[in-house]
Amino acid sequence: MPEAGAAGAPLMTVIAVISFLACLALAGFFFVRQAAQQWTSDLSGSITVQIVGDSPSVIDRDIAAAENVLRATSGVEEVRVYSLEQRRKLLEPWLGKGRVSDSLPVPGIIAVEVSPALRKDLSGLQMDLANRAPGARLDDHGVWNDSLSASAQTGQILAFGIFLLIMVAACAVIIYAARAGLAANKEIIDVLHLVGASDEFIAAEVQRRFFVLGLRGALMGLSLAIIVLLLSGWALQGLEPSGYFLPAIRNNSATMVWLLMVPLLICTVAAVSAKQTVMRSLSGRW
């Protein structure tokens, strides 16, 4: 098969663009997944005990009682009681600086780190707290976690769906190009048949051509996608220096490995669709 067929450079450009978009969709998929994982894993070992009450003195009493319960419970690894000063600071964005009256019953907060075993079953601790400190409420961040993983899941499904759609587009483009290539090279294919070439031989030649074309285009798309991802990671890092909300782009070798699979997938898709197309259209002849 001559290299200059129906498609050549334009097809390679299309494949490069498809590969670029596929890489971005896949990177989006992993980004959302890892961000959600990081958020939830940060929270999963920690619970919060809130203490509410009618007056500061009741609250202070329950805080002390709850702290005792927590320190006595096995599996509790760290107990951090927020002082009144710290709690007032937390309220500042809502109530304003220095305006909180001393008589306002500011709820108590105890941040607790627990072992995975205790995390699985908090009912014992919950009961102890209810007995000894009636104003204590145990928050295991379940609501936050649930809504977070639900939206992360939606994001992941969306990203993966887009990735699949892009792959379908790749298939369609390749099939179209393979058909056009067959029509444009009809004379050559007739000669190949004439000298005794089997359909498999012709299909293999076409397949090899599309594999190379697909690989070249896809690698171009991948390079571009990596550049864009690194640049946007770098830009976002500047915006959000703590790196808490945008963790996935940086230093993520697993994502990079998956991105490297995209060109392989694309050129395999190209080769297989081209071969199938050729075999199907040749078998219609005699």
């Binding site: 001559p2 004379e187 050559i188 007739d190 000669v191 048949h193 004439l194 000298v195 005794g196 070439a197 089997s198 031989f201 005699w286």
Partner: peptide, 18 residues
């Protein structure tokens, strides 16, 4: 068909070379 075509050599007026 290919096996049979390999037993036949064909020459054309318009050559049909690649």
């Amino acid at each position: 068909l290919p096996l049979m075509r390999r037993r036949i050599g064909v020459v054309f007026q318009e050559f049909r070379l690649l």
